[in-house]
Design a protein around this nucleic acid. Structure first.
Lengths: 411, 411
DNA sequence: GCATTAATTTCACTGCTCGAAAAAAGATGT
DNA sequence: ACATCTTTTTTCGAGCAGTGAAATTAATGC
C-alpha cells in the first residue's frame, strides 16, 4: 500500500531537489548562498554540489565571469546548470499556430519552428505525425542539443482526461481523442507530457512575478478564450494535470449566448474577443461564433470603447459582468489572495472593472473578505512559454536529476 | 528561507507518522501487518514500535483479546493506541445547540455535554466564557481523562479568517469576530483549533466510506444550510483551514431570493430547508428567511412532494435547479470523481435529481466527462463528529507524537 | 518430544546530515 | 614583501534511521 516511506534515498532526493530548485529560481549561486537559501548545512552543500558536479548536472562557473571584486574574504565561486547535459522540446499548439521550441537545460532558447494551424491541419495530418515531423526537423537542425533531449512537453487548450495523457475535448479541431502523446513517446522513446494552457498561465505568472511565488493566485486569461489557472500558496492546484479548470466554460447565464464549445451561456461567450464583438455589433446571441478574431479588430474595439463609443462600451460591460459573476462563483469554492488578468483582454480591464466589482460586491465572500486585488499584467511576454519551459525543466530537475544514480566510487 | 530540509529527524517523523496513521485507519495491527501496510521493513517496524511503546503512545495488546487461534506459526501480537495517553475535547457549535464531547486517544467517547443555543446565547455569555464553562464542567466530571487533554477542537459554521483562528462571519449569532479561540487557548494552555463544518463533512465521509479514501470527492450537505467540503485524491483541499468553501452562498441568480446571510440569490436561499419552504408556500422571495425550520416540517414537505403535491414538488425542483447550476459551476473549477449528498436534504435527492441532472447536462465539463456520480448518504450518523474527532486525533498523532522527543537511553 | 511455520528481533552495514575545525584564497595594512 | 583579516569551502568524526539476512521466539501438528 503505502509507498511513502522515507529513507536515506528520499532524503537525498529531497535535498538535491532543494539545491536544484534554488538554482532554477535564482540562477547561479555560491555554495554559501545555497546553504542559506535551502537551509542545509555548508557541509551538506559541499557534498551535494560535489556529487552534482561529478555527474555533470551542474558546473563550477568561471570566477572571471562575475567580478564581484569588492569583497574582502575568499571570493565565492558560483555553480550553475550545465547547459549541455539536457534539453527539452516544447510544443505550443494553438487554434491558429503551432510552435516548437528547443531549450537547453539552462533555459536558453536554442531553436524554434513555427507553423500555422488551420481547422483542417489535424484532419489532413494526424497530430502524432505533425508533431513527429517538426520534432525530427528540430533534431536534424540541432544534432548536438537534441542528442541529450530529455522531455517533450506540449501545451494545448481543452479538457484533458484524468491521467493527462490525451485530450477529451479541444477547441483545436481534430485534436481531441487522438493518442498522440503515447504515439510520440513510443516513436522517440521520450517522456512526453501534456499541459493545459490555462494551468501554464498560473505556472508562468509565478515565475514572472516573484512576489506571487507563495501566494494563492487565480490567473485569468482573457483574449480569444477565457481561461484560468490557480495556485494555492505556491502550489499549482490540481497536481498531476488533473482538476481541469474550465473557467471560461463556467455557465454564466442559463440558456445564454452560444459559445464556441457548443454550449450556451458560458462566460467565454460573453467575455472572449468574439463574444465582445458579437455584443458590440448586436449580432444575435445564438449566431455561430466567429472562428478567429484579428487582434487589430479587438484592439480597435477597445479604442472605441475608451473613446466613449456606446455600443463598444456596453459590450465590455457585458463581458465584465460575465467575468465578475464567474469570479464571484469561483470565490465561493476557492479564495485566492490575488487575481491576475493577462492576455489581450488585460488592456480592456479598466473597461470591465466596474461591472466586475459590482458583481463581486453582491457575493458573501467579498462582503466579508473585501474585494480581492485584481491586477492586470498587460505586457506579459510569453507567460505560456515561460510556464511550459520552467515546469518542464523543473520536472527534469526533480524527477531525473534529484534522484541520482548512486555514485559508485569517487576517486 | 526554505525550511524543507530533510534529515534523519524528518525521516523518523514521517515513518512514525505512517505507523500511527495505519493504526488510526485500521485499528490495532500486528507488526507484520504494519510492515506491509506502511512499506517499512520489519526491522524498522520493530524499532519504531519499540520506541512508541517505551513512550507509552501505543501498547502491546493482550493476545487473549483476539483469539485468531487458527494460525500455524507464532501468533501475532497486536499493538494499538494507548487510550490513556491523551484525550481531546470536541465542541460542535450549531445554530440551535452546542455539544462538547470528550474522547480518549483511542477514539472512544468518554463524556458529553449538550446545551441548547439561542440567538441570544452568545450575546448574554461571551463565547469564550461559554466554552470555558462547559470545558471546566467536563474536567470536573472526568479528572483522569482530562488530565491528559491535548487539544480542543471546535466545529462552527461560517467564514474563517485566513489563519483560521477566528470567524469573520457566522450564521450563529454573536460568534463572529470574537477571539474565543485565542482566549480559550490562553485560559487552558491548550492547542485550540477551529474547523469549518463543511470541511469536516468531507473529512468525515472519508472515514465513513473507505472506498472514497483516495478519490476526489465533493460532499454536499443539504439541510438547514447548504455547505460543501472537498477532498482531492484523499487530501482535504485547502490545508490549514484556508480556502473557505462557501458553496451554499455561491450566487445562483443575480438579485434573486433573499438569503439568511443577507445577500440575494445564494444557492442556500433556494435549496436550504427555509428556501424550499418559502417556495412551497409562495412566500415572496424577498421575505426574511425563517430563523429555524422544525425537522418535521421539512420532512412533511418531502412526504407531500413524494405524494405528488404540486407546490411541494415545484419547490424541490427549484432547489434542485439551484444545486445543479451550483454544481455545474463548481465543476468548472474543481472536478471531483464523486459527489456525495448528505444531511436532511439527502432524503429529498430523488425529488431534485432531475433538475440537478438537467442543469449539469448544460455544462461543457459534464458533456465531456459525463455526469458525475451523485450519491445520497441518507443515514449518516454524525459525519461531523466523526470528522472532527478523526481530524483532531490524527493531528495529535502527526504533530505531537510522530515527531518524538528523542529517546535518551534505552536500558 | 521434534519438525514446521510464521512473527519478531538482532546484527552488521550503508548513506545522509550536522557542527566544529581546518584549509583556501584573496584583500588590506605596514 | 609579508603578516593579518575576512569570507568561502572542505574535511573529519559523530549520530541517526533504514535495510537485508540471520537468529530467535512461540505456537501448531504429528
Amino acid at each position: 500500500m503505502g509507498r511513502n516511506v522515507s529513507d536515506s534515498d528520499s532524503v537525498r532526493r529531497q535535498n538535491r531537489g532543494l539545491v536544484l530548485g534554488a538554482l532554477r529560481v535564482q540562477g547561479a549561486l555560491s555554495r554559501t548562498a545555497l546553504a542559506t537559501d535551502t537551509g542545509l548545512s555548508h557541509a551538506s552543500i559541499t557534498a551535494i554540489t560535489h556529487d552534482l558536479i561529478e555527474q555533470q548536472i551542474i558546473v563550477d562557473l568561471d570566477p572571471a565571469e562575475k567580478s564581484d571584486s569588492r569583497g574582502r574574504g575568499r571570493p565565492a565561486t558560483l555553480v550553475g546548470f550545465n547547459r549541455h547535459i539536457g534539453a527539452a522540446a516544447l510544443f505550443e499548439i494553438d487554434v491558429n499556430r503551432s510552435r516548437l521550441s528547443l531549450v537547453d537545460y539552462g533555459g536558453v532558447l536554442v531553436d524554434r519552428i513555427e507553423t500555422p494551424v488551420t481547422p483542417t491541419t489535424f484532419a489532413d495530418t494526424p497530430p502524432a505525425v505533425f508533431l513527429a515531423q517538426r520534432l525530427r526537423q528540430l533534431q536534424a537542425r540541432n544534432p548536438a542539443e537534441t542528442s541529450v533531449l530529455r522531455r517533450v512537453a506540449i501545451s494545448v487548450q481543452g479538457i484533458l482526461d484524468r491521467d493527462g495523457r490525451s485530450l477529451k475535448w479541444s477547441p483545436i479541431a481534430h485534436l481531441a481523442n487522438r493518442p498522440f502523446v503515447q504515439e510520440l513517446a513510443d516513436a522517440f522513446s521520450l517522456t512526453v507530457t501534456l499541459h493545459k494552457r490555462g494551468r501554464l498561465l498560473a505556472e508562468g505568472s509565478r515565475w514572472l512575478d516573484p512576489t506571487l511565488r507563495d501566494a494563492s493566485v487565480a490567473t485569468v486569461f482573457v483574449g480569444s478564450t477565457v481561461a484560468m489557472g490557480m495556485t494555492f500558496r505556491g502550489q499549482i492546484l490540481g497536481r498531476g494535470e488533473e482538476g481541469s479548470t474550465e473557467f471560461g466554460h463556467m455557465n454564466h447565464m442559463p440558456n445564454g449566448a452560444l459559445c464556441r464549445c457548443g454550449m450556451r451561456g458560458c462566460i467565454e461567450a460573453y467575455a472572449a474577443d468574439y463574444g465582445v464583438l458579437r455584443t458590440a455589433y448586436s449580432v444575435p446571441e445564438t449566431a455561430t461564433p466567429a472562428p478567429a478574431v484579428p487582434p487589430q479588430e479587438y484592439e480597435g474595439l477597445i479604442a472605441r470603447a475608451e473613446a466613449g463609443d456606446r455600443a463598444a462600451g456596453h459590450a465590455f460591460n457585458i463581458a465584465g459582468r460575465a467575468i465578475g459573476f464567474g469570479l464571484g462563483r469561483m470565490l465561493a469554492v476557492f479564495d485566492p489572495s490575488h487575481i491576475l488578468v493577462i492576455g489581450p483582454g488585460a488592456r480592456a480591464l479598466d473597461l470591465m472593472l466596474a461591472e466586475v466589482r459590482s458583481a463581486l460586491t453582491g457575493t458573501l465572500v467579498c462582503r466579508i473578505n473585501g474585494l480581492p486585488q485584481i491586477i492586470a499584467h498587460r505586457d506579459e511576454k510569453e507567460p505560456i512559454f515561460k510556464g511550459l519551459m520552467m515546469k518542464t525543466l523543473n520536472a527534469i530537475d526533480q524527477d531525473e536529476f534529484a534522484g541520482a544514480p548512486l555514485r559508485q566510487s569517487s576517486s
